[in-house]
């Protein structure tokens, strides 16, 4: 895997939040690579740092209290032309052109992701006109075309609707239309289907896959739902407390889960075959993010714990197969 073949290459990213109660290491040494046209799934429980990773790439971490303390986020496939997003001024024109224009992001809650006082058309047009030199009329035509493309019926009428006049699924489609209106290279989707009901979830995922092929963009799919990962992703990063525990292709991840955390997660998914068994669950709860843990972060909840796991030494990242990495003492 050459550096220059990656659209985005995150190296050793650390994003900390300096709160009154202490430092929260929301993202602590994360490495990620996404190639053009590929989908990377990022999966983990609430508070594991998935969204903070995404917001760090977008340079939208609220500061204060948040700050990117270390690492690189290299954007661009060409080694000479790639830029480290961390070194850009987060409010400067260079970052603003990338944000929304080349890297777009959609969020979890379609009900509150659109500004209630403007029509969806206004909001899509605004997005187009920031990044492209077009007249308002052309932008509106493009907006209608995008709405049509994401499967909103009667788009010429709907373009003048306010967000509260659309259903949740429709709003998420409108948000996708808005995010893709500038043909970004990378779409970061932060739990895009979590707030939708199941049938709509499937439709939206299907739509995203279609659009990915059409526009040739990469997707970073953030979710806590392993089903969504299986459905969409090429590669997967499993996160726990700000660190990546396992990194593999989706196929390897589901067929040969390595990390005890991932194994436990997969066991805790209810299955429709097999009868009357008690559902397995992971013992304990996610530790307080303010608590200072050393060594393996999962050790207190791990069923396969060894002596070394309780030491203060951090487990190494082991490449067990090509492209399949796991951060666990069991494989050292």
């Amino acid at each position: 895997m050459e550096t220059n073949s990656c659209l985005i290459n995150v190296k050793g990213l650390c994003t900390y939040f300096y709160t009154d109660d202490g430092i929260v290491k929301a993202v602590d040494g994360v490495n990620l690579k996404i190639r053009r046209g590929e989908t990377l799934g990022v999966v983990g429980e609430s508070g594991c740092g998935k969204s903070v990773t995404a917001l760090s790439i977008m340079r939208l971490i609220p500061a204060p209290p948040g700050r990117i303390t270390r690492g690189e986020i290299l954007y661009g496939e060409n080694k000479e032309k790639s830029v480290d997003l961390i070194r850009l001024d987060s409010r400067g024109s260079k970052m603003r052109n990338i944000r929304g224009g080349e890297i777009a992001m959609i969020f979890q809650e379609p009900m509150i992701s659109l500004n209630p006082v403007y029509t969806i058309g206004d909001q899509i047009i605004e997005s187009i006109m920031v990044h492209q030199k077009v007249t308002k009329k052309e932008a509106k035509e493009h907006a209608i075309k995008m709405l049509d493309r994401v499967g909103i019926s009667d788009p010429a009428q709907r373009v003048d609707d306010y967000p509260h006049q659309l259903s949740g699924g429709m709003r998420q489609r409108a948000i996708i239309a808005m995010a893709l209106s500038c043909h970004p290279n990378l779409l970061i989707a932060d739990e895009p289907t979590t707030a939708l009901d199941v049938t709509v979830q499937a439709q939206v995922l299907e739509l995203m896959k279609e659009l990915q092929q059409e526009f040739g963009m990469a997707i970073m799919m953030i979710t806590h739902n392993l089903g969504v990962i299986a459905e969409t992703s090429d590669n997967v990063a499993v996160m726990y407390l700000g660190k990546i525990m396992e990194y593999a292709s989706a196929h390897d991840l589901f067929h040969h889960p390595m990390h005890p955390y991932l194994q436990a997660l997969l066991k805790s998914i209810p299955s429709i075959v097999g009868k009357g068994e008690r559902l397995a669950m992971i013992k304990g709860t996610v530790p307080d993010p303010l608590s200072i843990l050393r060594g393996c972060l999962f050790a207190p909840r791990c069923l396969e714990i060894k002596k070394i796991c309780q030491s203060e030494e951090e487990p190494p990242v082991i490449e067990v197969e090509k492209g399949h990495q796991v951060k666990c003492w069991l494989y050292a």
Binding site: M58, R99, G100, N115, E126, S127
Partner: peptide, 24 residues
């Protein structure tokens, strides 16, 4: 969320503030 969305679109902070936040 919609203010974060507005920022994620790449809008200038001034526009995010007056067009999207203050009105609401």
């Amino acid at each position: 969320q919609y203010v974060i969305t507005a920022r994620a679109k790449g809008l200038k902070e001034r526009i995010v503030l007056y067009k999207h936040a203050v009105v609401n």
